[in-house]
């Protein structure tokens, strides 16, 4: 008690230090994050918007306003239209698969079983691994000549002459349009599933046990509890998982750049990779910026909508 009493003794005016000024302290502590966001997010974003309305090149970034010319040019190319479609297709299909699998995984990992901690560690590995390393691993798995998956398929007589996937000895995953697109989706799911699963797991554990116990007492089975109680209660969390997933996938070019470089032909090209090929490697920086920013307004509106609906759905 003496300490507490000592603590409560009012300090004399004029002896207040910086540490006592909570408002100022809060500002100071927030300052690094603020500087970080402005420097690494804000300025590049403004720069990209500026570039998209100018005819800058990789060799000359002096601003010379050219209106909507970059947008007109990119819209005229079939590669851009394909990249736009692929970006939406890969993101939506992958996210649907991810949310379904993540919900199942979250349910599974909420149960008590032997090796649960190890399972959780293994689950997070794809997210913890640098995306470039993971994708290079997949590139090897899907190699046209040395794919271990092909080797296994041949060993169990599913690939080769007279087999279901035969007669060739290789599947050529990245050379066939459908298989290449499926490969990209698989890699995206592999990469982003852990994040969504962990988010949903946190959501599941936050559901009031009393509600679930009451449902059990009332005779609600597994599916009814899942679909009529857990899923509705999880919706705000699902929205958060979707939001992270959408934004991460929309802005990712590593998977495409390392795995397919947009091929075969342009069938797996996405906006981020096409922006890079056009703007950095091709030197048309203005068109690259316009490509990268094309969906920014749509994305921004989507994010605002999701966040607002999440706030409305929050269980208090």
């Amino acid at each position: 008690m003496p300490d507490r009493m000592a603590f409560e003794v009012p300090e004399k005016a004029g002896t207040r230090t910086l540490a006592d000024r909570e408002g100022l302290l809060g500002t100071l502590f927030l300052l690094p994050a603020f500087v970080y966001i402005i420097t690494l997010v804000g300025i590049p974003l403004v720069l990209a918007i500026t570039y998209s309305f100018s005819n800058v090149t990789a060799g000359n970034t002096a601003f010379d306003f050219n209106g909507l010319e970059n947008f007109r040019l990119i819209l005229a190319t079939p590669q851009f239209r394909r990249a736009l479609w692929d970006t939406l297709y890969f993101t939506i299909v992958s996210q649907i698969i991810i949310i379904i699998l993540a919900t199942a995984l979250a349910e599974l990992l909420a149960l008590d079983f032997r090796g649960k901690r190890l399972a959780r560690v293994l689950l997070i590995l794809p997210w913890a691994t640098p995306i470039s390393l993971g994708t290079i691993g997949w590139l090897w798995l899907l190699d046209s000549k040395f794919s271990p998956i092909d080797w296994v398929l041949r060993a169990i007589h599913l690939l080769g002459p007279g087999t279901i996937f035969g007669p060739g000895l290789h599947m050529n995953y990245l050379g066939k349009t459908n298989l290449a697109m499926a490969s990209v989706i698989i890699v995206y799911v592999w990469r982003f599933l852990p994040l969504s699963a962990v988010i949903l797991m946190a959501g599941l554990t936050s559901i009031n046990r009393e509600i679930l116990d009451q449902a059990a007492v009332d005779g609600s089975g597994f599916w009814r509890t899942l679909l009529e109680i857990k899923v509705p209660l999880l919706l705000p969390i699902v929205n958060v998982a979707l939001l992270f997933g959408f934004i991460s996938m929309f802005s990712d070019m590593t998977v495409i750049f390392l795995l397919t470089r947009g091929g075969p032909v342009y069938y797996t090209q996405v906006l981020a990779s096409w922006a890079y090929f056009k703007g950095v490697e091709g030197g048309a920086l203005g068109e690259g910026a316009a490509t990268a920013l094309f969906l920014f307004p749509v994305l921004l509106a989507g994010v605002i909508m999701v966040l607002r609906s999440t706030r409305r759905m929050e269980v208090t």
Partner: peptide, 21 residues
């Protein structure tokens, strides 16, 4: 040729030659 040529990296043809394929 086969469909593999649509999904190659810059190293693929080297690897194919070295593998005798």
């Amino acid at each position: 040729m086969t469909e593999e040529v649509f999904g190659w990296t810059a190293a693929s043809n080297n690897q194919g030659l070295i593998a005798g394929e």
